[in-house]
Design a protein around this nucleic acid. Structure first.
Lengths: 225, 225
DNA sequence: CACCCCTCTCAGCTGGTTCTCAGCACGGAC
DNA sequence: GTCCGTGCTGAGAACCAGCTGAGAGGGGTG
């Protein structure tokens, strides 16, 4: 069972890592938010221990980004007790548990075990952006009351955009995530499919959910469009 | 519904596997205690049939280890009638039922069905979707008032689809759950059986319960159809 | 042994889906 | 306004997923 520890205080990080290894966990350590996010995205961890106060990107930020990218690995947040950061916010963002520093080591281990056992919650079956709804389990899509007839590829593309609603998603990311990691064909395929989508989900309803971000990619406004 | 059979007598194992497949179960076979334990831990089985006398690790051992690792899949133990091993011990260790060899095949099937039903509370004895009704214990199916004559395989397929009513069930999942974990044959078998089902449960009634989700699999609409 | 039923394989067909390509439109820089 | 780069779109080709009929193989039954 692998654990990712994202913590900038080197001493604490090392101590936690050593202790967890002794308990039989495999441990990865990241010293700042950016590398922490990378490691977390690469996946394979049963639990993530995430400090809130971090150089680079805060723990909040990392957590938000993770969930936005559909990564549902359980996260245990670490806070200093000075209360500058609100743990409630973290839980809102999708943290699964938290500990206030300093903490007894055994408590950390127990909480991690509990989180790991509980496992990663199912990814939400439903994506909602304004009156656009995707049911990923049923593979159905609606604009308001109207069901949309999307092909598999169109559905996958829309799913990815809605999963990162509010973000400008680079065309390269769409290519590698919706198509293939090493897609060899014409990258223009993304534009073609964006066109298909707009004709199905926007034009008939006089809407403009999918914005073009010139030179970057596309964005679905979190507030809807 | 997947069954794991842990049995070292190759003839018996093969006979049981064949018989269970004919009854519509997906069957995994392990020939000794060690691989049996591995398979069991990998999960996904509704029931485990476990011989006591095994090379490698005894059935006792495997059972103890399973329960120690918090795996609660129902287990049916097989014993030779010479009484060298005490079935009471097995029940103490957390076995759920037992059979003394030799046993009538129909008894095995009945016990397995009972265990599977009892074992997972979320698998009800009766599945209802609109006017489609499956009695999984009695192995009977109706559309409205009309009883349907389904073969074992057709029944298993319909059971799985109805158990996930509303979801688009991937073809790969159907293959591994209704057929076999490592089904080697032509995956087209799923389409063939979907065709059989439609001819029995839909066409005669002018209905369309089973929708094709192109590029994914099949779906039975929770609201019926 | 003959027959029937069930399971599964195979190959042909169909139409929707995916993708390529080429030309056009548009935005931004100067 | 002109030019260049980027994005949009229609047409059509290639492909492939899914459906079906035919039939082989095997087990069980009379």
């Amino acid at each position: 069972m692998r654990v990712l520890v994202v913590e900038d205080e080197a001493n604490l990080a090392a101590a936690v890592a050593r202790g967890l290894r002794a308990e039989g966990f495999g441990v990865d350590v990241a010293g700042d938010g950016v590398t922490g996010l990378q490691r977390a995205l690469s996946g394979g961890h049963a639990v993530i221990v995430l400090d809130i106060m971090l150089p680079g990107r805060s723990g909040y930020d990392v957590l938000r980004e993770l969930r936005a990218r559909q990564v549902w690995t359980p996260v245990l947040m670490l806070t200093a007790k000075d209360g500058e950061y609100d743990i409630a916010d973290a839980l809102d963002l999708g943290a699964d548990d938290y500990l206030t520093k300093p903490f007894p080591f055994v408590v950390l281990v127990a909480r991690l075990r509990a989180l790991a056992r509980r496992g990663s919650p199912e990814r939400p079956a439903r994506l909602v952006v304004a009156d656009l709804v995707l049911d990923t389990a049923a593979h159905k899509a609606w604009r308001g009351e109207t069901e949309l007839a999307l092909t598999a590829r169109e559905f996958a593309l829309l799913e990815h955009l809605m999963g990162r609603a509010g973000d400008a998603v680079p065309k390269s990311e769409l290519l590698s995530e919706v198509w293939d990691e090493n897609f060899a064909g014409d990258p223009n395929i993304v534009e073609v499919y964006i066109g298909y989508l707009r004709r199905k989900i926007d034009a008939p309803f006089g809407r403009k959910s999918i914005e073009t971000v010139r030179g970057v990619g596309y964005r679905i406004d979190a507030a809807g469009g």
